[in-house]
């Protein structure tokens, strides 16, 4: 039950994009088309889940026993950078079309602060292994949900009558703000 709560809360209540305001760069950069938003969301989910697992193992088996918690940030950067490289090679080998579709945004996951945030928050809240995994998947799904919703809205915006000064990034930021407000409505759901 607790796992389910963490899963739902990571998706809706503590959504990385709309609650913590992490990972805004791909959220705005890749949300022009639903297709690419979905692929980006999946790639981020994948990296988030593996990062959560590997960083938990390193944190609990290496850093904490040696009292090296202050090395968390550096180690997690190392983990994320290597994992993204690995994922990139893997996708390139397995599915060239997906590799083409993700393009530059795949290596850019390295600098997606939502992933770093995930590893640090999981360490901060002292989640156990199962919880961390669920938290990672939930956060990824939450990111995917936010970016796909955003892409859907922006596809509609393309054909709507937006005031000229607000076209493009301006209206996108306003939409992001309103979405964040709307997601605050979930905050009473889980105590």
């Amino acid at each position: 039950m607790e796992l389910l709560m963490i899963f739902i809360s990571a998706i809706l209540v503590n959504n990385f994009v709309l609650y913590y305001f992490l990972g805004i760069c791909p959220f705005l950069g890749v949300s022009k088309k639903i297709d690419s938003a979905v692929s980006m969301g999946l790639a981020v989910t994948f990296v988030m889940t593996i990062t959560a697992v590997v960083s938990w193992m390193i944190n609990h088996w290496i850093l904490i026993p040696n009292k090296l918690e202050y090395l968390q940030i550096v180690t997690f950067i190392l983990v994320i950078a290597s994992l993204v490289q690995l994922v990139e090679m893997f996708i390139r080998k397995i599915s060239p079309p997906l590799y083409q579709a993700l393009g530059i945004y795949l290596p850019l996951i390295t600098t997606n602060c939502a992933i770093m945030g995930l590893a640090l928050i999981a360490a901060l809240k002292e989640y156990n292994f199962a919880t961390t995994v669920i938290f990672g998947i939930g956060s990824g799904v939450g990111f995917t949900l936010a970016i796909v919703l955003m892409a859907g809205i922006r596809e509609q915006l393309d054909v709507s009558d937006v005031p000229r000064p607000l076209k493009g990034a301006g209206i996108a930021l306003i939409v992001a703000g309103i979405m964040a407000l709307a997601f605050q409505g979930f905050s009473g759901m889980i105590k």
Partner: peptide
């Protein structure tokens, strides 16, 4: 800490190098 970081870095780089060879396109 120096040893830990060094070994971790080495492990990851070896892992990546092996993966690169295996997954080379």
């Amino acid at each position: 800490p120096i040893l830990t970081m060094g070994i971790l870095g080495l492990l990851f780089s070896v892992g990546l190098a092996v993966a690169y060879q295996k997954l080379k396109v």
